[in-house]
Amino acid sequence: MSASIPAGRSVSVVVPATTANLGPGFDTLGMALTMYDDVTVSTRDEPGVRVEVHGVGADELPTDESHLVAASLMYSLQSWGVEIPGMDIVATNHIPQGRGLGSSGAAIVAGVLAAKGLAEGLVEVSDSELLRIATEQEGHPDNIAPALFGGLTIAWMTPEGPRSTKLTVHRGVSLLVAIADQSQMSTRLARSLHPETVPHEDAIFNLSRAALLIAALLDSPELLPEATEDRLHQNYRASAMPETSALIAALRERGFAAVVSGAGPSILVLCSDPGQRVDAEALIATHGGASWQCHALTVDQRGATVEALPGFAH
């Protein structure tokens, strides 16, 4: 028999944006950023799901159970043998949609954590189960792991499911995210541009850079420009994001560790100190072509959180 969530339970979930790949760490490395979506979910006696969206995507995102937070929440409850209650969901979005900052991963994580919070006392959900159920929906864990756990994460797949480990970034590393005002890129489209095989030397090149990138982010930020070189995915996607590619080339020519953030078209610049971040932002402001919004961010260390709101029914 399925467990039932009482009416009158409310939880609040906060989920960070994420940036994946970081150059050479394709489908493996991810980082949580200090930019957040906020979701509140309340249960009621009346069946059905109502969604209210504020902020980014308020005019475009669905307001029924097809909304990604709602779909993830229901999927998680069903997987855990919990009946789906009537729900009101209020999503306040700050993470840009389709810009390579983990908006879909954040929505999925929000749904999974809301499900865990609402089902308190009915099911026990471990961190590994959170990672599993969220990755099952997203398809890969590189954005899911940092969204859940914060920090710099390395994620990998095993026959038993996804795994991840969390690392602490050197305090000298400063982050700058440049978001294109208009262009979007779906992860599916970005992946369709990759060849089925890559040259052996390119694989070795990326292995060396990915290993070097961990050393740079943890201990030696001065190595970031070399450590963020990539031959596995960015060049193949360049034709679909010409303005992104042009700006990255301009930044790297000046010695900045600039990479595509996730599937793009946003750009992540990993700076070795705050002064370098200021210089990178100044270069972006004078670069021709697209208009870019720059955000000086830091690494989010907490990851997603869920808490019961006052009056939580038991």
Rank of each mutant, 00 (worst) to 15 (best):
N93R: 06
V15D: 07
L268G: 03
A285I: 14
D273Y: 13
Q137S: 04
A238N: 08
E65F: 02
G288M: 13
P195G: 06
R237A: 12
H67G: 02
D37S: 00
T19Y: 05
Y75P: 07
P242D: 15
W80C: 09
L176C: 14
S192R: 14
L283T: 08
L212K: 01
D45R: 13
A91Y: 01
T187I: 11
G139N: 04
P159K: 01
P6H: 12
I267A: 06
G303R: 01
Q137W: 03
G139Y: 11
Q184P: 06
W156D: 01
L33E: 05
S12F: 00
R302Y: 04
S128K: 09
G262K: 06
F256V: 03
Q234I: 06
L29P: 03
E196G: 14
V306T: 08
A107E: 04
T244H: 04
A250N: 10
A308R: 15
D45Y: 00
D300P: 03
V173W: 07
S4D: 14
R50M: 13
D230I: 01
S164Q: 12
T34A: 11
T135R: 05
H67L: 05
I248E: 09
R50T: 15
P221F: 03
P225V: 15
L213I: 00
V112N: 10
N93C: 07
Q301V: 01
A58W: 04
G262E: 00
E160S: 13
A114V: 05
A145S: 15
P242C: 09
A180S: 07
S104C: 05
T168F: 03
A304C: 14
P195Q: 01
Y236T: 02
A17I: 08
G55I: 05
R209M: 04
Q97L: 15
N21F: 07
V13E: 02
T286F: 01
G255A: 10
L218Q: 15
S128W: 11
S266A: 14
A308Y: 01
Q78T: 14
R171L: 00
D230Y: 02
F26D: 07
S4I: 05
P195N: 06
R9E: 12
G150C: 05
A115Y: 13
G288I: 10
H295K: 15
S104E: 07
G102P: 02
N206Q: 05
E138D: 12
M35R: 12
P225C: 11
L268A: 02
V82S: 12
E253K: 09
G86K: 08
S10A: 14
D45F: 00
F256I: 08
P162Q: 05
P141T: 11
V198P: 04
L218S: 07
H67A: 13
R191E: 10
A32M: 02
R302N: 10
T305Y: 10
D273P: 03
V14Q: 07
E138N: 12
D142Q: 04
T165V: 11
V112R: 10
A145F: 02
L77F: 14
P16V: 01
E229M: 09
A134K: 01
P310I: 09
A210M: 13
P221V: 12
A114R: 03
L176P: 12
